[in-house]
Design a binder for these strands. Structure first.
Length: 483
RNA sequence: GGCGACGUACCCAAGUGGCUAAGGGGGAGGUCUGCAAAACCUUUAUUCAGCGGUUCAAAUCCGCUCGUCGCCUCCA
């Protein structure tokens, strides 16, 4: 496997610290507001990395944290007139609802910052005694000038950053770039006892404490959105490496942003879409597919148009699944090979190697999906040749298994066509029930038997206007939701 | 100002030195069908923002130009 390492600035061969074992950490959310599609991208990307690493035979431990104490949470609590921890809990619950919908699995450990106050205090104390941090009016700051490697992840040097202005002056800091490890709390704010008086942890220290506790001194993969590279991840490196004296993380991976009208989706611009809003209009599978159809490091332009295309692609997939099922259900009478048997056989042989080659190359899900649709096309073409018998059934079964295997890693394409159509009926607000549709199909069957084509076509048209497409097959009429 | 990324067909999107430039969506024509739908076939990039260079060979490496975006402040 090759992984693009932000620290190295290039793809590197993946060699875990401990052979056969992978330890991975990704930055979760600060629980103070609804999650938007950008959070979904990050969560899905790391979910797929985790699934693939596991598929590749590694024993993986995956940690994803929740920041449950922070200025934004405190402000939100004031706004909503509820306790800060109630705010955190509310948005964590909501996060789980969103992620469950999107097929994002739970991490092995999902620590919350406030459960690790003691560990954080220990690190902060250690950093003070080692001379990397100083206390000032009840707060503790990390002195970046003392840490030689500062800037190595974000590729910038301290001098340039100081010259770059846009840094607020803070009387308590020795240097404007110094960052808070521990913040003294004002009266009425949540606070924990510490050697420096009542206060709360700074944002960055929690990830250092929780990863150290669960993954050890040096671990394999640390991920997050590209906007966390600086300052968050840079600061994590400084704290952790200053404290342990050992390398913090071997591979840093960062996902790209979602854009709207070419601009980064962000709270301040107000151009964001919450996961909830999107799932009101679209089923979750097209959303997940859409986010995986572009390489994780590239920007993705978000639009309804794109989601509709994703819907069409998924529909193509399930339509083919339905077709293979109809095919396998046919009574076998004779053994007949189709002209493209060899082509299909060849492709079946190299499908999984091709899938792995794509995923091994820095988790190229876009290429992997391309391979899936290549198989879909070849499979359809093969069935067009009207093969029959045991050999044909075995090839088609094999194709289905392989598609399921690849889909399992991406966690898409793993429903039945019926579940897909049902989901579409919900997301598209189809007013008909399945019984309504079946009744119309029965009416139309009668009309067709009487060769009353006008009446038959009228029923077809009527259903189409309500979003249902009829398909006449040899042994009856099927239906599907129009995408 | 500093650092970085990107620019591939009508749209989305792989491909980063050498097999016919993946795949999806859309358009046009066709096969099939009572009509459709689905599927399949043909077609839609002699060319990868532009210019110049390196090389037997470049979308892929180097340089310049143009354009777009990001980080440098909380941010997935």
């Amino acid at each position: 496997m090759r992984i693009y390492n932000t620290l190295a600035g290039e793809k590197e061969e993946f060699i875990p610290v401990t052979p056969g074992q992978v330890r991975m950490y990704s930055c979760g959310i600060t629980a103070y507001d609804h999650c938007h599609i950008g959070h979904a991208r990050s969560a899905i990307v790391f979910d797929v990395m985790r699934r693939y690493i596991k598929y590749r035979g590694y024993d993986i431990t995956y940690i994803r944290n929740f920041t449950d104490i922070d200025d934004k949470i405190i402000n939100r609590a004031k706004q909503e007139g509820i306790a800060w921890d109630a705010v955190a809990q509310k948005y964590i619950d909501e996060y789980y609802r969103d992620m469950d919908m999107l097929g994002v699995g739970r991490a092995d450990v999902e620590p919350r910052a406030t459960e690790y106050i003691a560990e954080m205090i220990e690190i902060v104390s250690g950093l003070i005694s080692k001379g990397y941090a100083y206390e000032s009016e009840g707060s503790v700051y990390f002195e970046v000038a003392k840490f030689g490697g500062y800037g190595k992840l974000s590729k910038r040097d301290l001098e340039d950053m100081l010259a770059g202005a846009r840094i607020e002056v803070n009387e308590r800091k020795k240097n404007p770039m110094d960052f808070a490890l521990w913040k003294s709390s004002k009266e009425g704010e949540p606070a924990w006892e510490s050697p420096w008086g009542p206060g709360r942890p700074g944002w960055h220290i929690e990830c250092s404490a929780m990863s150290l506790k669960h993954l050890g001194v040096t671990f394999d993969i640390h991920g997050g959105g590209a906007d966390l590279i600086f300052p968050h991840h840079e600061n994590e490196i400084a704290q952790s490496e200053a404290f342990t004296g050992k390398p913090f993380v071997k591979y840093w991976v960062h996902n790209g942003f979602i854009t709207v009208d070419k601009e980064k989706m962000s709270k301040s611009l107000g151009n964001f879409f919450t996961i909830k809003d999107i799932l009101n209009k679209f089923d979750s599978e097209p959303v997940r597919y859409f986010l995986l159809s572009t390489h994780y490091r590239s920007p993705i332009e978000f639009s309804d148009e794109q989601l509709k295309e994703a819907e069409a692609s998924i529909d193509r997939y399930y339509t083919t699944v339905l077709r293979t099922r109809d095919f396998l259900a046919q009574a076998v009478t004779v053994e007949k090979s189709a002209p493209d048997e060899k082509v299909l056989e060849d492709l079946l042989g190299r499908f999984i190697p091709g899938f792995m080659e794509a995923m091994d190359d820095d988790f190229n899900t876009a290429l992997a999906i391309g391979g899936i649709f290549e198989l879909i096309r070849v499979l359809n073409k093969y069935m067009d040749g009207k093969p029959a018998g045991a050999k044909a059934s075995s090839l088609i079964n094999r194709a289905q298994d392989l598609l399921k295997e690849a889909g399992g890693v991406l966690n898409i394409f793993n429903r039945t066509p019926e579940q897909w159509y049902k989901a579409l009926m919900v997301s598209k607000n189809i007013s008909l029930t399945e019984a309504d549709i079946e009744a119309k199909i029965a009416d139309r069957r009668k009309a067709r038997a009487d060769k009353d084509w006008t009446a038959a076509d009228l029923i077809r048209k009527e259903l189409e206007e309500k979003g249902i497409i009829l398909e006449d097959k040899k042994d009856g009429t099927g239906w599907k939701v129009k995408v």
